[in-house]
């Protein structure tokens, strides 16, 4: 790990964590984790945003708790402990949506509960939080959650505009191509459109992000 003695070192460390999660090792485009939900909930931008919010919430708190407990978690049951902590926060979020945002909860359906098995959250707990102090772990949770959300929203933007011919975010219509005589391209609403968009985005981001293995 990088030097963390001086304050300057601390600062760089946090910036590193942030850049890693959002861009350099973005969970979706570089690590190719959490693809299932990224394909499933990106038909509409607002669904993608709420799903992203859920993952940010869960990864912050699961990273925090795992990090706080990192010295007392018995090594043998470390992974099941992480899953139990993640599951608790996911259920809390799901209950919250059911109580306060019923429509959203209906649209996201089973995908909120499936955050429990989202490799990103589990991966950050196992790869980062279990061996780093709480504050850094919280930052790592934010960075990865935000990295996931940005990619999801980008995919959803493309799919909603091309697939539905309009853009409506939280009930406010921003764009409507249908009035201009645009024909909806249904393939972008269906699964294949999600694959095309995600693949294209990965290609672009990987081409821009050239400090990967090829260069070394």
């Amino acid at each position: 790990m990088h030097g963390n003695t001086a304050q300057q070192g601390q600062k760089t460390k946090f910036r590193e964590i942030f850049m890693d999660g959002i861009y350099r090792i973005n969970p979706i485009t570089i690590q190719v984790l959490g693809i299932c939900s990224a394909l499933a909930v990106t038909v509409r931008v607002d669904n993608a945003a709420v799903m992203g919010g859920a993952v940010i919430f869960v990864s912050i708190f699961s990273n925090l708790i795992v990090s706080l407990l990192r010295k007392i978690i018995p090594l043998r049951i470390r992974m099941i402990t992480e899953v139990a902590i993640i599951a608790t926060f996911v259920i809390v979020f799901d209950q919250f949506l059911k109580a306060y945002y019923w429509e959203m909860s209906k649209q996201l359906g089973p995908y909120v509960a499936l955050i429990i098995t989202n490799c990103i959250v589990m991966g950050r707990a196992e790869a980062f939080a279990i061996q780093n102090p709480p504050l850094q772990s919280v930052f790592d949770g934010i960075a990865n959650g935000v990295g996931y959300t940005i990619v999801l929203v980008l995919i959803a933007l493309v799919r909603e505009i091309i697939g539905s011919g309009s853009l409506t975010i939280f009930g406010i219509q921003i764009l409507s191509l249908l009035e201009l005589g645009y024909t909806k391209n249904l393939i972008f609403v269906l699964g294949p459109g999600a694959f095309f968009t995600t693949g294209f985005l990965m290609w672009v981001l990987n081409a821009l992000n050239r400090n990967g293995e090829e260069e070394k």
């Binding site: 007392i72 978690i73 018995p74 049951i77 099941i80 402990t81 139990a84 902590i85 599951a87 608790t88 259920i91 809390v92 209950q95 919250f96």
Partner: peptide, 17 residues
């Protein structure tokens, strides 16, 4: 540890529910 974790987790879920 496992018992305590289970207790804390289920108690908090119960309260939220």
């Amino acid at each position: 540890f496992a018992t305590l974790l289970g207790l804390v987790s289920s108690l908090s879920l119960f309260l939220v529910y």
